[in-house]
Each structure stands twice: as structure tokens, then as C-alpha cells.
Design a protein around this nucleic acid. Structure first.
Lengths: 234, 234
DNA sequence: GCCTCTTTGTGAAAACGTGCACGAGCGCCG
DNA sequence: CGGCGCTCGTGCACGTTTTCACAAAGAGGC
């Protein structure tokens, strides 16, 4: 069996899919499945079977030809590769609506990312307890991060404050940031940042909606002659 | 009938960046900027300048060589392309923690996506008012969608209920779905689905954290400077 | 032991996205 | 009114991701 440590690099696109496979496999295992083919997994994940096989092959040769993959073993391997054999406590910056909703979201803890702290600048919020965690002042951030060996920070502040939050996190030693503000953070090289932006998602959907609407219109007007090619009449 | 240029298709990767440009341009316009070069915009968006130019070129030739882009005009063009010249009311399925946080998030309405309705299956929640909108029963979904011409649905239910929610949305005529549950939805062809999954994002960060930890270990054992990591730019 | 059936693992090709480099066009200055 | 400097628009080469197609290999039957 492949014993070599992760010296090989896994493509980013694959890394983004592994959590999806993991969730499906875990679920299927709980439902009693012990074995699964790339075809089945692909179906459940909504992707191509060859892609599944190639993705999984980056972990090693863990399948059995003619049979498929051992679900439990694969779950373990993916978890190991993703670094999920340990908990990664996170610190949430911003105890507003979003910060509270995030802290209250049980899936966090359940998936190995317990809330190790929440900080805010607002003195009115400091001291209150959200989802069992006491909100502390932003100035205590570094101390919280250190005392709990936190390396992942979640930014749930208003956009205007997000860069300051990022700077504070980086200064405290955090090396991964999940940013819910709609800003592009500037961070030193070597810090991982991922952004989740509601507005962006909705605007992408809006683009497709509009496209559909145009297409429909186009179709219904097809019989009309002399349809002017839309120009920049703006 | 053949070959009209209005059928041009914008690459998905570009569509995903346009909202980012839009936000930056809007902000800069409010700060008094009237003109901006691809270089500046690229800097603020954290991407390559050539990419910005190529992205914008899909909208048309709206720049002026030697000068740059007219900010206000570009804002208008991007908004038009993304279909943001009109409001797109959304319906939220699920009035739990997440649904409430989403409904309460002002940015929704502000960016042209007013909350047109919230539904839930829980009778205890039906009738309550969240962010000025009365929660209605799931069975009223079709009626709400129809009466407000809603085409975008947001799924904020527990994962187990997400597929049912999607089915109900599709049955009601919704054609775009933003899914916050960690499930892979199965929908008919022609329906746009985007997924926002917290756990996936954290797990991707976890992968990189673990990788860094391994690399650090390796480095300290060998006293060799770390190899450059891809990713976040400064 | 050997044949057949199934499904993996992976080269090779195609498709897609990114970044460089440079010609083209515009405004400004003298 | 021509030359200069700046910045756009884009052809091209490169890297990454997806898809195809098939040899390789395990399992089970006989």
C-alpha cells in the first residue's frame, strides 16, 4: 500500500471535491454501504466517474478492480489527506448577525471545527455568550489564538472592518482565513484565504436568469423580421 | 438569422469575477474616481491585469487606450450584463438560524435581491415575522413564487430536507437555486444551482494547514528553505 | 487453473483558463 | 500636425482540468 507521505501535490480542483466525496461516503457508510464503485459515487456527487477515479488516485491505489472502493477505508484516507484526523478550532471575528449564526451552526463543531473563540470590537457585545462561547474583545484576539493553538480565522465583520480583522488575525499567527465580507483581502504570502460572498453568488445566478430571459424572448420574437441587433445604445 | 453577436457567451470564470469588479468600481466611484486602468482594478481585485482586460473585453470594447475605463460607464455595463438593472426577489426556504440570518442581512435588499418570501414547514415558525417578512408555510411556496414573479430560491434548510426544498422550488417555477445545505441537489436540466458549503471551505483550509504543518516538519528536519506555496498574493 | 466479468488506474487528447508580449489606438504636448 | 507615451485588446503559448478509452487486475464460477 502507498505509504509515502503527502509529498505529492493534489490539484486544487481535486482538493475542493474531496470534502464532497467524504460527506457522501460518510453518509452512505451510516446507511450500511460497505463498498462503492466510482460510478455510484460519481452519480451521488454529480460528477463524471473518471474524475472520481482520478481524484481518488491522488490518495493512492485504494480501490479494488472489479469491485470498487471500501467505503470505510476511503473515508479514513480522505480524512487523513484533508487533515481531519485532528480538530481545528476556529476563531470568529465579528459577533453580529452572521457571527452569531455561524457560532450557532452545529455543523461546525460536528465536523471538527469547534468554535475556539469569538471576538468583537463592540463593548456591548463583549461578555455576552453566543452558543456557549463568551465573546471577548478584539484586543484579546492574539491571546485567544495562542492559548488554543488556533490557526483558522473566520471573518464575519462588516466589509469595512474586514481588512483590519485580517491584519489582526495574521498578526496573531493565524494562517488560514475564511472571509465572509465582500472584500478582497490583502495578506502576506503563505496565508490561505477563501472567500464566501453571498452577493457574488446571487449575481452569478442573476446572470444566468437574465440570459435565460433573453433567450426566451429571442425565441418568441424569432418570427419578427428586422430584429435590430442590440447595440450599445446606452 | 445566422450569427448574431449578442449570443456571445461569457466564460463562467469571468462571470464569477464580474461581481468583484462591480463592487470595486462602485466603491471607487463613490470615492470620486471617474477613470480607472486595468492595472489599478487588477490590483484592487487581486488578479492579473491582463485577466481584467480580457474579462472586460467580453462586454465590449469599453476602454480607451492610453486612458483606461470610465468607471461609471463600466459599472453600468457590468450591471447590465449581469442582469442587475432589475431587482430579483428571492424566496428563502427554511426559517431557522441560517434563514433568519440571511433574511436579516441587509446586503440582500441593498444589492437588488429583496427577500420576497420566507417559508418553513414548522408551524411554530409560520406566522412569525423575520426581518419584516412574515414566515409562511411551505405549502404556500408556489403561491408566493407566482404572486411575486420570483425566480431565485435560497435553500436554508437542514441537509436532509434540502432535496425536497429543491423539488418544491422547481415545481413552483423557480429556475435558480442557491443551496446552503451540504447536499448535491438533483434538479432538471436548465436549472442553475450554486452551492455554498461552510464545511467544504473549512476542509479545504484544513488541507492547506495540514500541508503547511507537514512542510514545516520536513523543513526543520532538513534545514531546507520552504518551497514557494501557490495561492494568496500579497 | 483458467476464463469471464467487472471496475480500477492512467496515458493521451481535448477543453479550458491564465499570463505574456506586443501591435493598435488615443490623448497630449510642442 | 506629427511624435510620444500610455493603456487597451488580443494572439499565442503555457499550465491546469476534464474526458476518453483501454490495458491491467481482482473475484467468482466451473
Amino acid at each position: 500500500m502507498a505509504g509515502q507521505r503527502s509529498r505529492r501535490r493534489i490539484p486544487e480542483a481535486t482538493v475542493a471535491r474531496l470534502p464532497v466525496y467524504l460527506r457522501i461516503l460518510t453518509e452512505q457508510f451510516e446507511l450500511g454501504a460497505h463498498n462503492m464503485s466510482s460510478e455510484e459515487l460519481a452519480e451521488l456527487a454529480g460528477v463524471n466517474a473518471a474524475k472520481v477515479r482520478k481524484d481518488l488516485s491522488y490518495l493512492g491505489s485504494y480501490g479494488t478492480r472489479g469491485v470498487g472502493y471500501d467505503v470505510e477505508f476511503l473515508v479514513y484516507q480522505i480524512r487523513r489527506e484533508l487533515g481531519l484526523t485532528q480538530d481545528w478550532p476556529v476563531i470568529i471575528v465579528g459577533a453580529g448577525h452572521l457571527g452569531q449564526a455561524l457560532a450557532g451552526y452545529g455543523g461546525f463543531h460536528e465536523r471538527g471545527f469547534p468554535v475556539g473563540g469569538i471576538v468583537d470590537v463592540d463593548d456591548a457585545k463583549v461578555g455576552t455568550v453566543v452558543a456557549g462561547v463568551r465573546v471577548r474583545h478584539l484586543s484579546d484576539l492574539a491571546q485567544v489564538v495562542h492559548s488554543r493553538s488556533i490557526s483558522i480565522g473566520v471573518i464575519a465583520t462588516p466589509s469595512a472592518a474586514s481588512q483590519d480583522a485580517a491584519d489582526a488575525l495574521v498578526a496573531a499567527g493565524v494562517t488560514s482565513i475564511l472571509n465572509f465580507a465582500s472584500t478582497v483581502l490583502s495578506v502576506p504570502h503563505g496565508i490561505s484565504v477563501r472567500k464566501v460572498d453571498l452577493a457574488v453568488e446571487l449575481q452569478i445566478l442573476s446572470y444566468h436568469e437574465q440570459r435565460r430571459a433573453n433567450a426566451a424572448q429571442q425565441t418568441s420574437l424569432r418570427a419578427v423580421p428586422g430584429e435590430p441587433t442590440r447595440g450599445a445604445s446606452a
